[in-house]
C-alpha cells in the first residue's frame, strides 16, 4: 500500500505518500511507457530550462567583472555609466541609477497597489461575495490579460499629459507615472492571490469570532487577515517581481533619463528599460553589451530572491498551521 492518504484535520490538506503505480509495475503495456516517457521528459525539461538560462546569464553577466575587470561595488554603487562599445573596454559601468530607478518605481507601485488590492480582495470575499465572484473577479482577471504595451500606451496618452497639467511640469515622464502604471499592472495579481488566501481562511474561525460578539471589521482585521497573511505576502511579492521585470510599459513613461530622480516627479531610468533600449545598438561581446548582460543577471538574481522569499513564507505558513 504505497498510496496512504493522510488527511491532517487541522489544515484539511491531504498528502500522498507515493505514486499510485510504479514504473516497474507497468509491465508490457507499451502506451504506458510512451506516456510515462513523454511526461517525464517534459518535467525534466522544465527543470533544466531555467537552470540553463541561469547559467547562461551567469556566464554572460560575469564578463563585466572577469573580462573587463570592474568591481561588483562599482557596478552596484557607482552612478558613472559610460561603458565602451567595443571589446577593448576601459569605460565605466556604474549601474546605480538604473538600480535606484527600479527600486524607486517598484516601491512606489507597491505603496499604491497594496492598499487598493487588499481592500478589493476584502470587498470581493468578505463584504460582497456574490458581486465579487460574479463581476469583480472576472474584471480583475481581464486586467491580468491586458498586454503591458497597452498599459504603457494608455499611460503615455492619458497619465503623462495629466501629470504635466496637474503639477505644471515641462514633461510628464516621471517616477510617479511609472509607479502608477506599474501599480495598475500588479493590482490584479495581488488582488487575486490575496482574495484566494482570504477565501482559504476556514469559515469555522470566522464563526468562532462572530460567536464571541466580534464585529465584521474585527473579524476581518484580527482573524481573517492574520490567517491569510502568508498568501497575501506571496501575492505582494509576486506582484513586486512582476513590477521589477516589466520593461515596456515602464520604458514608455519613465523618461529614460540617466540621472538619479530628484523627486517623485522627475524622470529617471531603470534596469529593464535600459536593457530594452540599448541592447540593439551595443556590439556583441563588447563592454557595453556585457554590462547590459550583467544587469540582466541582476534582474534574474532579484527574481530568484523573490521566489525564495515566497517559498520561505509558504513553509513558514505550513509549519504554523501544522500540528506541532
Amino acid at each position: 500500500m504505497n498510496n496512504v492518504e493522510t488527511i491532517d484535520r487541522s489544515t484539511g490538506r491531504g498528502s500522498s505518500a507515493g505514486p499510485m503505480i510504479r514504473a516497474r509495475d507497468i509491465g508490457n503495456f507499451p502506451k504506458e511507457h510512451v506516456w510515462n516517457g513523454f511526461v517525464k521528459g517534459a518535467g525534466i525539461f522544465m527543470i533544466i530550462l531555467p537552470i540553463a538560462i541561469g547559467i547562461f546569464l551567469f556566464i554572460k553577466g560575469c564578463g563585466t567583472f572577469t573580462t573587463y575587470g570592474h568591481s561588483i561595488t562599482e557596478f552596484l554603487f557607482s552612478a558613472d555609466w559610460n561603458p565602451a562599445d567595443d571589446s577593448a573596454g576601459g569605460g565605466t559601468v556604474g549601474a546605480a541609477v538604473y538600480i535606484v530607478g527600479s527600486l524607486y518605481t517598484c516601491g512606489l507601485a507597491l505603496l499604491i497597489a497594496v492598499p487598493f488590492s487588499l481592500a478589493a480582495a476584502i470587498f470581493m470575499t468578505e463584504i460582497a461575495p456574490v458581486l465579487g465572484n460574479r463581476f469583480l473577479k472576472p474584471a480583475v482577471e481581464i486586467f491580468v490579460g491586458i498586454p503591458s504595451v497597452v498599459y504603457g500606451w494608455i499611460g503615455l496618452t492619458i497619465l503623462i499629459p495629466f501629470l504635466k497639467a496637474v503639477f505644471h511640469l515641462n514633461q510628464g515622464f516621471s517616477v510617479l507615472a511609472a509607479g502608477i502604471v506599474l501599480a495598475v499592472m500588479i493590482f490584479p495579481s495581488i488582488t487575486t492571490l490575496s482574495a484566494d488566501a482570504i477565501r482559504g481562511v476556514s469559515m469555522d474561525c470566522r464563526k468562532g469570532a462572530y460567536g464571541m460578539g466580534a464585529t465584521r471589521w474585527q473579524v476581518i482585521y484580527q482573524i481573517v487577515l492574520p490567517a491569510a497573511k502568508p498568501g497575501v505576502l506571496t501575492g505582494i511579492i509576486l506582484g513586486l517581481a512582476r513590477a521589477f521585470g516589466e520593461a515596456l510599459a515602464v520604458a514608455m513613461v519613465i523618461g529614460k533619463t540617466r540621472a538619479f530622480p530628484k523627486s517623485i516627479l522627475s524622470a529617471t531610468s531603470n534596469l529593464t528599460s535600459a536593457i530594452a533600449s540599448d541592447m540593439g545598438g551595443a556590439m556583441e561581446g563588447g563592454e557595453y553589451n556585457t554590462a547590459l548582460w550583467t544587469m540582466a543577471l541582476l534582474l534574474f538574481l532579484i527574481s530568484l530572491l523573490f521566489i525564495f522569499i515566497v517559498h520561505q513564507i509558504g513553509k513558514h505558513g505550513e509549519t504554523e498551521n501544522a500540528a506541532k
Binding site: 476556514s202 464563526k207 460567536g211
Partner: peptide, 15 residues
C-alpha cells in the same frame, strides 16, 4: 453574542 457565547462542533481555535 457577548452575552450568549457559542462552542462549535469542530474545535475552531484561531491560528
Amino acid at each position: 453574542r457577548q452575552r450568549v457565547g457559542m462552542v462549535f462542533q469542530q474545535p475552531n481555535p484561531f491560528p
